[in-house]
Write a protein that binds this DNA or RNA. Sequence first.
DNA 1: ACCTGAACACCGTTCAAGT
DNA 2: ACCTGAACACCGTTCAAGT
Lengths: 245, 245
Amino acid sequence: MSQPPWQPIAPAKPARPAKEPLTRDRIVDAAMRVLTQSGYEAVSMRKIASELGTGPASLYAHVANKRELDQLLVERTAEQMVFDDPIDPDRWQEQLKATMREMLRAMRANPGVARAAIGAVPVGERALRTTERILTLLKAGNVPDQAAAWAVDLIPLYVTAVAFEETVQSASDWTPEDVERFVNNLRTYFEGLPADRFPLTVALANQLTSGADGDARFEFGLTVITAGLAALAPTPLTPTPNPNP
Amino acid sequence: MSQPPWQPIAPAKPARPAKEPLTRDRIVDAAMRVLTQSGYEAVSMRKIASELGTGPASLYAHVANKRELDQLLVERTAEQMVFDDPIDPDRWQEQLKATMREMLRAMRANPGVARAAIGAVPVGERALRTTERILTLLKAGNVPDQAAAWAVDLIPLYVTAVAFEETVQSASDWTPEDVERFVNNLRTYFEGLPADRFPLTVALANQLTSGADGDARFEFGLTVITAGLAALAPTPLTPTPNPNP
DNA sequence: ACCTGAACACCGTTCAAGT
DNA sequence: ACCTGAACACCGTTCAAGT
């Protein structure tokens, strides 16, 4: 109506600009998309940039470098972990295992992130809830302070290493048949070793090559670590009958 | 004397050719040199080639690809592990720890190899001695077959993950002062967290950030894993007084 | 302040051509 | 059979120039 005739047809101030402005969040979103779709190897500054319709140089206004971006991907994953089971001191071992299972679940949901996580401790507020939860469970189990603190390192180390091992297999464009063939070859190889020098490797060829697919190996690690931590408590079995002497 | 005059001055068949022929071994030697001097990131087909005075394409006649070369570096490292302590069933836990320490020692002696090792199980004959040794020690400890077999996976997983964590720090051109400053910042950060939501993280800030430098953390893991494995034995404590009933 | 094109110094791998 | 130069399709990061 009162539009002056020299006003261009396109509105001078569109509701939103044609291009969303670049933000840290949008960069991490794009990186996460590339990560879960194509794995860690595919996450490059250039790919993320082209995903966002810009050049790689543009990212450096918001992210210091690739290492920082890796760190942000790990934080994102840590934020996806859900721990709503209220802590019950009597079930601390089972709850610790459940916590580790949830950590693995979140890493599996973001295939490839384990590679970025293996050297990076997440220190974001959301991620620290995992630390606090692990500490609470270990204190419930009467594990000494220093042991509990180091366990906070050991536990994610194990979970991350397992998740990483899994992605190495799947990243190398192997089909499930390829994996099965490889495992069979490995078993045959173990069985054919000189029995005088490798008696147990030959005898246990079956056990050595079993459980590569499912969760059995992971569960085994949970059991070993939990039992090992429980053994560190000064009084691992007595149920503290009376707090007053 | 009887040399025909048209014979060129340079001998037609020199004792050895000016260039040593390329072999798998020479390639791995060069890769190992680059690895220990400049870390895993620096190990590239091109760098190795130029180290050998040739182009990258030449390597592919002897090595399938970079993954295979990584595997070969891991084998080399496994070959450097020395286990000459004869197995003593009564000391199986201490000997298992010593075995893991020797594994870590060899990985530390080849900085960066952990990165290549983390997804690659060494299956060379020399490396299988480690497997056989671990199995023997666990059988001495009365650990069930399947548990022992899975432990063969768990144990190198832990050692490799620790070694890798160490190299991530040192690879990122941090001085020891940088590391100390980082650890101090981290402790201050933990101490300053809201104590109502993170009571244990605040209270254990000191313990959480201690032992980052030395072997204490690694030793902690050895203790946890060994104790956890010992707990899997059906009769972990009874010394089998009489084999006949 | 934020974004960009272009450049720098790298990668792993392939392939036709040489010896 | 082994080796090579050149090329292909990529990297992370920097920087001067634009808006």
